[in-house]
């Protein structure tokens, strides 16, 4: 029931790579409507598209919807509603983009253009208006050649990144310092670097403390002292043997099941 209700919202059209494409993928789109609109996906002007083929690029999609009007921006994403597109700015290593089916937010310049787009009956091929998506050998050769960088350029890039990083960590430190000051109600936050030392809040430290407690408890215990303890340890030995026996029996049963006892 749900799905039948849902599908009409989406409009399905074929998206061709170029004029010669014989069996194109079908893309589905509708107006992007969520409760909270972000700045890059403004309400009323954003088209939400799913099932974008792996090789499609921004320019290609602009071409595809060129009949509706001018496209202001194209945002690709692997999952709908994911907001984190800026994280890339902070990373040093750029992850190679792996082609996969995507979703896309297409932002038009005007609201009317969106309406027009929703009424389209045919999309232009992606390779038009002088644009051609680089694929196959050409793409890989480009990728290879672009990966080679002169030492100088690399050095500059590293320096720039480190500068940025130093600045940031300085800021963080400053913030922490600020936390150490008494706030308006007289509270002081204890941090790692302040005058009042605290332990690091990590799993390792917690485990260590727990282990220490355990150890202390054990040290106070007497072992092999009372008769019942000796009896118990003997029993434990037998239990261990039995357990092994049971385990082995299980193994045998397993082997038996797979009929591996017929030697010939």
């Amino acid at each position: 029931m749900k799905s039948t209700k849902k599908t009409p919202e989406f409009k399905a059209l074929e998206l061709k790579l170029n004029e010669n494409t014989i069996s194109p993928h079908v893309i589905y789109f509708k107006e992007h409507s969520v409760r909270e609109h972000t700045n890059d996906k403004p309400s009323g002007r954003t088209l939400f598209i799913v099932n974008i083929p792996p090789y499609a690029d921004e320019k290609g999609l602009m071409n595809a919807f060129s009949a509706a009007g001018t496209v202001q921006s194209v945002i690709f994403s692997t999952k709908p509603n994911s907001t984190s597109t800026e994280t890339n700015l902070n990373t040093f290593l750029k992850k190679p983009q792996k082609p996969s089916f995507k979703v896309c937010y297409l932002v038009f310049k005007k609201v009317s253009e969106l309406d027009k787009a929703l009424k389209l009956t045919k999309l232009c091929p992606m390779n038009s208006n002088g644009h051609e998506i680089k694929l196959g050998m050409k793409k890989w050769i480009d990728e290879y050649n672009n990966s080679i960088e002169t030492p100088k350029a690399m050095k500059e890039r590293i320096e720039a990144f480190m500068k940025n990083y130093d600045k940031k960590s300085e800021e963080v430190e400053k913030q922490e310092k600020a936390l150490e000051q008494e706030d308006s109600e007289g509270w002081v936050t204890v941090t790692k670097k302040g005058k009042v030392q605290s332990f690091a809040r990590s799993e390792k430290v917690e485990n260590k403390i727990m282990a220490k407690e355990e150890k202390n408890k054990k040290r106070k215990e007497l072992k092999n002292f009372y008769t019942f303890q000796i009896r118990e340890s003997k029993m434990k030995h037998i239990v261990a043997l039995r357990q092994k026996f049971e385990e082995d029996k299980k193994k045998i049963a397993q082997i038996k099941q797979s009929r591996r006892f017929k030697p010939f």
Partner: peptide, 28 residues
């Protein structure tokens, strides 16, 4: 891709398009 089975719209994997994609991705 949408297909119509017994007057109902259902969806199936677009094998033809995928095969064409293979050609497109491996240009050259």
């Amino acid at each position: 891709m949408p297909v119509t089975i017994n007057g109902e719209t259902k969806y199936k994997v677009n094998i033809e398009a995928i095969l064409e994609d293979f050609r497109i991705l491996g240009e050259g």
